[in-house]
Computed example of a mutant assay.
Amino acid sequence: MESATAHARAPKQGRSRQSFDRIIEATIDLLRERSYDQITLAEICQLAGVSTGALYGRVTGKDELLRAVQVRFFERLDQAFTEEAQRIAAQAHGLAQVVPAVVAGLGNLLKENASVLRSFMLRGAADEVIGAAGKKSAYENHAKFSRLVEACKAEIRHPNPARAIEASMLLIYATQARFLGLDSFGGKGEARGWEELLEDLSDMMLAYLLFVPGR
């Protein structure tokens, strides 16, 4: 797994490493409140309790810092996805239980981290490093949940289970991402409830997996 220091100059001493850790944590805290373009480096340093010189001793500016922050944040997000997938595997049995658990698990993890993910998404459109890391994390974490549905393959009636799982998971993610403002359209779910959306998506996914096309 890539280290957050991959996008920063190596520290000359332990104190420098600790200062940079505080800078990364301060940045994540601020990203939960507002977008990265609304945050200044001076503000980050003030919250972290370090000088701006300490920051520029490790990175060249905001773009490089955001790359390092993304690595640290994705380490935690990937672990959260792994733990949630393990929880579902242990507690949900059969397609009727697994599908709602997968839809809710994916959606709630996105919802809890949407404010931070939004900054990565917006910056990723112009920064190839951030964009590639975001796609890689999303693909790997999605796969963890897709495998849970694949384990119920015997119950799926669609003649092409793999295709049905891939298509429905893609639809689930796209709908949740749009609701949460994690796409170019921004949030579209203000007029309806989140829990209602999760229920509808679960019902639609189950119906599709159990559907036998007439063609």
Rank of each mutant, 00 (worst) to 15 (best):
A68C: 09
V69H: 11
Q70K: 08
V71H: 09
F73K: 02
R76K: 12
L77Y: 15
L77D: 01
Q79C: 07
Q79Y: 11
F81P: 00
E84N: 04
E84T: 05
Q86R: 13
Q86K: 12
I88D: 00
A89Q: 14
A89V: 03
A89C: 08
A89Y: 09
A90L: 13
Q91D: 13
Q91H: 13
A92R: 07
H93V: 04
L95S: 08
V98P: 10
V99Y: 14
A101D: 14
V102H: 10
V102Y: 11
V102P: 06
A104W: 14
G105H: 03
G105K: 02
L106I: 02
G107F: 04
L109M: 04
K111Y: 08
N113P: 04
A114M: 11
S115Y: 05
V116P: 05
R118Q: 15
R118W: 15
S119P: 04
L122I: 03
L122N: 03
L122H: 05
R123E: 06
R123Q: 06
G124R: 08
A125D: 11
A125E: 15
E128W: 09
E128T: 08
E128F: 12
V129A: 14
G131I: 08
A133S: 08
K136G: 11
A138L: 10
Y139E: 02
H142G: 11
A143H: 10
K144S: 01
F145Q: 01
S146V: 00
S146L: 00
L148W: 09
L148D: 01
V149H: 04
A151K: 00
A151W: 13
A154E: 14
E155D: 12
E155W: 11
I156V: 14
P159L: 02
N160C: 00
P161V: 00
A162S: 11
R163Q: 12
A164Y: 14
I165R: 00
E166R: 00
E166N: 05
S168D: 11
L170G: 08
I172F: 11
I172N: 12
Y173D: 14
Y173L: 04
Q176V: 15
A177D: 07
A177I: 08
A177H: 12
R178D: 14
R178W: 14
F179K: 05
F179H: 12
F179Q: 07
L180D: 05
L180K: 06
D183R: 05
S184E: 14
